[in-house]
């Protein structure tokens, strides 16, 4: 089966990559580019640790064929904020004790971002946040502090609370 060239924009940077048709986006990110912030686990869209944003929407990169993102824009956790300029979600996760082992956290943060960006400025309920995060399993936290963090970040992103 023939290799092909993939053109994709990842975190604002254009990449031209030689891929096998059956490679998933997760394989390309981790195995080919070496961006390890996107995690791997179940590989069947059950756990959510591989979540990335495709044109701003959260998707499971473990079952997304890389060839299908030709010409499209991907955001990974590395593209969200850096240690000096944390995204409000990243800052809130730290402040609210929402991070334990941390393996699910990139996926959790990107799932939350996708959800909050659907209705900018609107403060979601805790139940709505839980629904939005249900596709990402966390075994450490019991989710409560993650919900706290997303709720706080939503307020901050809506400009209702200044970023400290």
């Amino acid at each position: 089966m023939s290799r092909r060239i993939l053109n994709v924009v990842i975190n604002g940077e254009r990449h031209e990559l030689l891929i096998e048709p059956h490679w998933t986006l997760l394989q390309v990110l981790r195995g080919q580019i070496g961006m390890m912030g996107t995690k791997e686990n179940c590989l069947e869209a059950e756990c959510g640790v591989c979540t990335v944003l495709l044109e701003g929407k959260a998707v499971n990169s473990c079952i997304l064929l890389a060839g299908q993102v030709e010409g499209r824009a991907i955001t990974t956790i590395e593209g969200l904020g850096d240690p000096e300029h944390l995204h409000p979600l990243q800052a809130a996760f730290i402040e609210h004790g929402a991070v334990q082992c941390g393996y699910c956290i990139p996926g959790m943060i990107l799932s939350a971002k996708s959800f909050l960006d659907e209705n900018p400025g609107r403060q979601p309920t805790r139940q709505e946040i839980r629904e939005a995060l249900a596709g990402t399993l966390c075994r450490c936290t019991g989710y409560g502090k993650i919900v706290d963090a997303v709720a706080a970040a939503a307020q901050r992103m809506a400009g209702k609370e200044p970023t400290p």
Partner: peptide, 12 residues
């Protein structure tokens, strides 16, 4: 529609 997988699946 709201109970098919998680948001990541429902987005695509």
């Amino acid at each position: 529609a709201a109970v098919v997988g998680g948001h990541q699946v429902r987005n695509i």
